[in-house]
């Protein structure tokens, strides 16, 4: 019951958080002293032209009225038209969402698969050569600029070794669209050729995203295991003659992973952040490339749309993490 209560209270906060996000992004793009009308019309526009355009776009109304309109538009899913693709922005974003989701989810899976075992082994074999190596790599992983790492991986694996495709998401048309996630779709329609192509294309961008995330997970898992392993109840289980492997599985991991799970929520935000830049390097047709194209075209509305969508994604994901957290660690649910 308490868990339900927590989830409900989070859901109640979901609406004002998103509303606040819309307001902040709106204010940022309106209060800042640049005149979008002048920018759109160029320097040679006459005063009369500027005024006419201002009325046409609704910039002559008070800020509060503009904000109310903006809210109405966002609620009805109308984010304006993209200068880049000449299509409605929400349509563009919806079409690109699966690509970004697939990339970030594979990256999260990869970083967990790498990070947790390495963190546990590193803690269990503390101060061994392996532990030192893992720590050096994980400290370095947090200091590398993601876009630079992406280019180095491209250089090595795609250009020099030819082991992976240089960019894009798939060869050919891709599998029958069901979920929009190519890996899932090609499994559902049992299209092995598409599956192979999708996997080989996602390998490098996902690895780029996963490495810094794995570094964070290693650090937290290692610290968590070290803390638990010295606790009284683990000492007690050992003293009772429980085999060490079982102690690790049953008692150490569960408690050590609590802080790691919280981190995974934060990591999703970092991954989306890095995805913006990484997608550009790999020509991955997701939200990130859309954002960058919009920046290059100075497309205000598209960038506002992107910001709102990304914010919503992260808020939703954090909610899921909170729920997962409450299942692993019931203490937190008041």
């Amino acid at each position: 019951m308490r868990r339900l209560e927590m989830i409900l209270s989070r859901l109640v906060w979901f609406v004002p958080t998103l509303a606040g996000l819309v307001v902040i992004v709106f204010l940022i793009s309106n209060v800042i002293p640049t005149d979008p009308v002048r920018v759109a019309l160029g320097e040679n526009a006459t005063l009369a032209q500027v005024e006419a355009m201002r009325v046409k776009l609704g910039y002559d109304k008070p800020l509060a009225v503009q904000l109310a309109r903006h809210f109405r538009d966002v609620l009805s899913g109308n984010l304006g038209t993209s200068i880049y693709s000449q299509r409605p922005i929400s349509e563009d974003l919806a079409k690109r969402l699966p690509a970004t989701l697939e990339l970030t989810l594979v990256a999260i899976a990869l970083s967990i698969a790498l990070g947790i075992p390495l963190g546990v082994v590193s803690a269990l074999k503390r101060n061994s050569l392996l532990d030192h190596a893992v720590r050096v790599v994980s400290v370095s992983g947090l200091a590398i600029a993601a876009f630079w790492l992406a280019m180095q991986l491209q250089f090595l694996f795609a250009m020099k070794l030819g082991a992976a495709p240089l960019n894009s998401r798939i060869d050919g048309f891709g599998p029958e669209p069901i979920t929009g996630l190519f890996i899932v779709d090609s499994l559902l329609s049992w299209d092995m050729e598409s599956l192979g192509s999708a996997l080989s294309h996602i390998a490098l961008p996902a690895l780029t995203l996963a490495l810094p995330a794995a570094a964070t997970i290693v650090r937290f898992t290692r610290a968590g295991v070290l803390e638990v392993i010295n606790s009284n109840y683990v000492l007690y289980q050992r003293a009772m003659g429980m085999p060490p492997g079982l102690v690790v599985w049953k008692y150490v991991l569960r408690n050590a992973l609590i802080s790691t799970v919280t981190q995974i929520g934060l990591i999703f935000g970092v991954l989306l952040t890095n995805a913006v830049v990484i997608e550009t390097v790999f020509d991955w047709p997701g939200l990130g490339t859309f954002a960058v194209q919009s920046i290059l075209q100075s497309d205000h509305k598209a960038i506002i749309g992107f910001t709102i969508w990304t914010g919503a994604l992260i808020v939703i994901f954090n909610l899921l993490v909170d729920i997962a957290h409450s299942i692993i660690d019931p203490r937190g649910t008041r």
């Binding site: 996000l21 940022i28 952040t273 954002a291 990304t310 992260i314 808020v315």
Partner: peptide, 19 residues
């Protein structure tokens, strides 16, 4: 909290692009 809900770079992109 709202500021922290969005990755720093996403908001920063919006601001830097406007300016």
């Amino acid at each position: 909290d709202i500021f922290l809900a969005v990755p720093q770079i996403v908001l920063a992109i919006a601001i830097a692009q406007t300016l």
